[in-house]
């Protein structure tokens, strides 16, 4: 385990006078699961958006494998090996599950306009590439039990399945760091258990490092190696799950949020 795998250093961003993220720092070890918790509106998703390049932070540094990636364009960051899912699903609704996952192979494929428009045989370059990558995607479909949704348009799939397709699409990118934004939101307890296993599998078998935003404390406790709690954009506690959960500062931040009181206790 090397400790300079991924780190965020003094990250800060302001929207119209509001400090959405205020001097947040943390480090993630390779092949670990790191969770960020905090009440709604605490700035968790904003941190994700800074990491994946959708927002440009006002100050601070994001380092990935010894290289600064702060302020790079989103597709550059994806090419470095960082994939993510979204809190409100952002799938390509009028593509099938297979096609969504194939889009995840985008950075690993090369077919361009010419070869992509002029293949007429199985042996053509574009066709060969297509076939190889469809086989790879099939493995992810197997892993996440998505066979029945394979050729369906994702717009018509149930919510829980859509969440899985999104996870699958991120995996298809073969990320080294995977950002999951509330993966269990809207899932029932059975689906949530499956998810817990899969996330564990992804970390252990595929060797992917996972950064997680999650409200469900059970899930966080079960799988996280370390937890960071933030409130009003500021870090209020970091450590192993049990530590953070019993931190008086963290408890205070959660009080008043009914839903989370029982989640914490």
């Amino acid at each position: 385990m090397d400790s300079d795998f991924f780190s965020v250093d003094n990250l800060a961003i302001t929207f119209g006078g509001l400090r959405a993220v205020d001097r947040v720092s943390f480090t993630i070890n390779r092949r670990s699961i790191f969770s960020i918790i905090g009440p709604n509106g605490a700035g968790k998703t904003t941190i994700f958006n800074c990491i994946s390049g959708l927002y440009k932070p006002d100050s601070g540094k994001i380092i990935f494998k010894g290289e600064e990636i702060t302020g790079l364009k989103p597709h550059r960051i994806a090419m470095k090996g960082i994939a993510r899912t979204f809190q409100n699903i952002e799938l390509f609704l009028r593509m099938t599950t297979m096609e969504n996952l194939m889009l995840g192979r985008h950075i690993h494929t090369k077919t361009g306009v010419w070869s992509g428009s002029t293949f007429f045989r199985r042996g053509s370059k574009a066709a060969r590439e297509e076939i190889t990558h469809r086989e790879q995607v099939e493995r992810i479909i197997d892993l996440l039990d998505l066979q029945s949704a394979r050729d369906q348009f994702v717009g018509g799939l149930p919510y829980g399945t859509q969440k899985l397709v999104e996870l699958g699409r991120a995996l298809a990118l073969e990320p080294e760091l995977l950002l999951l934004d509330e993966p269990s939101a809207g899932m029932n307890s059975e689906e949530r258990q499956d998810l817990t296993f899969w996330v564990k599998d992804i970390q252990e078998e595929l060797g992917v490092t996972i950064l997680l935003i999650e409200h469900n404390m059970q899930l966080v406790r079960d799988i996280s190696d370390r937890v960071l709690a933030i409130n009003f954009g500021r870090p209020i506690g970091e450590g192993i799950p049990e530590e953070v959960q019993n931190d008086p500062e963290v408890l205070k931040a959660y009080l008043g949020e009914e839903e989370s009181i029982d989640a914490v206790s």
């Binding site: 960051i77 609704l93 096609e99």
Partner: peptide, 19 residues
């Protein structure tokens, strides 16, 4: 590949660029 990238941009350009 190119066609999929086009459709991805149409359906969600944010997701497309993060992929």
């Amino acid at each position: 590949r190119v066609g999929r990238a086009f459709i991805a941009i149409r359906d969600s350009d944010i997701a497309a660029e993060t992929m």
